[in-house]
Design a protein around this nucleic acid. Structure first.
Lengths: 181, 181
DNA sequence: ATTAATATATATCGAAATGATATGTATGAG
DNA sequence: CTCATACATATCATTTCGATATATATTAAT
């Protein structure tokens, strides 16, 4: 999903500033399945404004840049509906962790073990943070998505705990000078 | 993981052409957690060659561009080891599907239902294709990663099957001309 | 008490990556 | 016999990332 459509969708749920949009995708209940940086969000909002798909009210603030609260225009809502009619593309899962494991022949077994330990901790942390999101009042869709995230994280955690034995002996230690040849 | 390191890692597992690398990340056992397009792979290989981290042998082919089989140089292997010493960043999961659900207030309940049906099919297909990868002979690490993928896909599938009821009544149908005002 | 870090809020910019396309043939399916 | 897929390289416009700049208020740590 391009940042453009992402912004339209978020604004469909309520007015927001660019800063708030960024926060939602980076830390909020959107963080599980999307991300976008300032470098893409602000230009997107500018363009959407030019196209009349969003509008904004400026709230002056002393000692701080004026706050621009964006809201979806009727044309923007139509554009969102059109975008959502298209079939969503397949999910994309990127994992440096799994890549590192695959290439782990080049690293020591201790490093592999450390990698997995770190990973287990990260999964537990992620699950906790998702669970705490559930406390806040949410729409059913939002709750569904967060619970989905929890389920997937939990499955990853369980798999790692139950199968790390498979990686016994993965990794190479630096060969000491070989006797042969 | 940048494409550069990805290429080094893949070449550490065996020599390959740019075309083959692309195929591995797009369809092979790497497809679960990484992706890269020609537009990033070919320039990366060119730069790696310039830097002496990979070399290649040209296999002339009539009626087809010459095949360039790349292989990792000792310097490249060192660079890979250095890269793998850095802590892997967090996973990134992007899902247009989940985003669509969150924004689904703007679409019809039927569309939501259709979305989920499609999704169930896609998960089953993905699981099948991952399972068929397991038949091929694999390194332990490779097998671990694929089984990890299966576990996660299965968890997502199970969640959808068991909880789609949560989305009952999500979505709005176009209001017919309201009696009131 | 003072330093350090975090949060608010906008915005830009170089570097990286995507997704599509160009080129041209061989092969297998329908 | 036609059409799609596989092989194999490569480029390019557009999009996105990740870092940085600017400036202050608040909270946390030592």
């Amino acid at each position: 999903m391009d940042v453009r459509t992402l912004c339209l969708g978020i604004l469909a749920l309520g007015d927001a500033t660019g800063y708030e949009i960024r926060k939602m995708v980076a830390e909020g209940s959107f963080s599980f399945f999307s991300e976008a940086s300032y470098g893409s969000i602000y230009p997107a909002l500018t363009r959407l404004t030019e196209e009349g798909l969003v509008t904004y009210q400026t709230t002056p603030q002393s000692k701080r840049p004026d706050k621009k609260v964006y809201n979806l225009s009727p044309a923007g809502r139509e554009e969102l509906t059109r975008a959502l009619r298209r079939d969503p593309g397949p999910d994309k899962n990127r994992s440096e962790f799994l890549a590192s494991l695959l290439f782990a022949e080049a690293v020591s077994p201790e490093r592999v073990n450390e990698l997995i330990g770190d990973r287990l901790r990260q999964h537990r942390q992620k699950i906790d943070s998702l669970k705490s999101l559930l406390d806040e009042d949410m729409t059913p869709a939002s709750s569904f998505v967060v619970q989905f995230g929890i389920a997937v994280q939990q499955a990853a955690l369980d798999f790692l705990e139950n199968n790390r034995g498979m990686l016994e002996g993965i990794g190479t230690r630096k060969k000491r000078k070989s006797a042969s040849a």
